[in-house]
Design a protein around this nucleic acid. Sequence first.
DNA 1: CAGAGCACCTGTGGGC
DNA 2: TGCCCACAGGTGCTCT
Length: 271
Amino acid sequence: MPELPEVETVVRNLRPVLVGREITGFEAAWPKVTAPTAPATFARQVVGRAIKDVRRRGKYILLDLDRGHVHLHLRMTGHLFVIRPGEAMPDQQIRAWFGLSGGIRLLFRDQRKFGRIGYLADLAPLEARLGPEPLAAKFTAALLAGMLAQRRRQIKPLLMDQSFIAGLGNIYVDEALFAAGIHPQAEAETIPAGKVKALHRAIRRLLRRAIEHQGTTFSNFRFGRNESGRFRDQLKVFGREDQPCFVCGTALAKTRVAQRGTHWCPRCQAP
DNA sequence: CAGAGCACCTGTGGGC
DNA sequence: TGCCCACAGGTGCTCT
């Protein structure tokens, strides 16, 4: 479900509410939510700690504590939101919750149970598995061109690989490849320089605009008090199979690339 | 290194 | 109507 813009939206929503609070408790209704660590072990690591900052790295939500860090990953259907003192647990699917000072609770709802919560004293092992932030100043067109050189992988699965670039997922990769006129199965190193430049521009523009629109809600992305993102109206190919391409009018295609549903224009993104 | 297949889970929608 | 299958915005593992 959530890619970089959706995770960023969640973080911006939670930061003002969480920063400065102390973690007073942790409960897991679904024990694997903290896998491979047992919930009781995780609770011992974080209870009593203060939240100094809330931020995003790739698709991870990080709570920087006065000692160590909590990392949360929403995977496909995770939601993270706060309820006020005395407010009842909303429904089923609450896999875990944190008690916080002031009587508020931070709830983790997750239909498919893929989401994970963990603790790291040091973030180095997480950093080691993540590529650059696509919105960072350091992520230049020249850097991307260098990263693509000598890579013979298909461009779509390469862009979705979090150790290559952190934060892109199925929606924004399909949208970026369309914007740049690149076939999703193009071999990375063969993409002409002009299109690499267009891809770089498209990735950054799409992510920025999606964040402004508070992400894309398809079926179940929600943040805050059950709010949905508005970027869905801006999508050019994702979820538009069989409909006319906005640029050339050709019927958009949906195929499988690396086991993922892939939306593209057979004409604008001809092989 | 690259790619396929499958595992992890639950729910929904389409086709028959 | 009801059943079954495919599919879902993610990731990690094994195997070739």
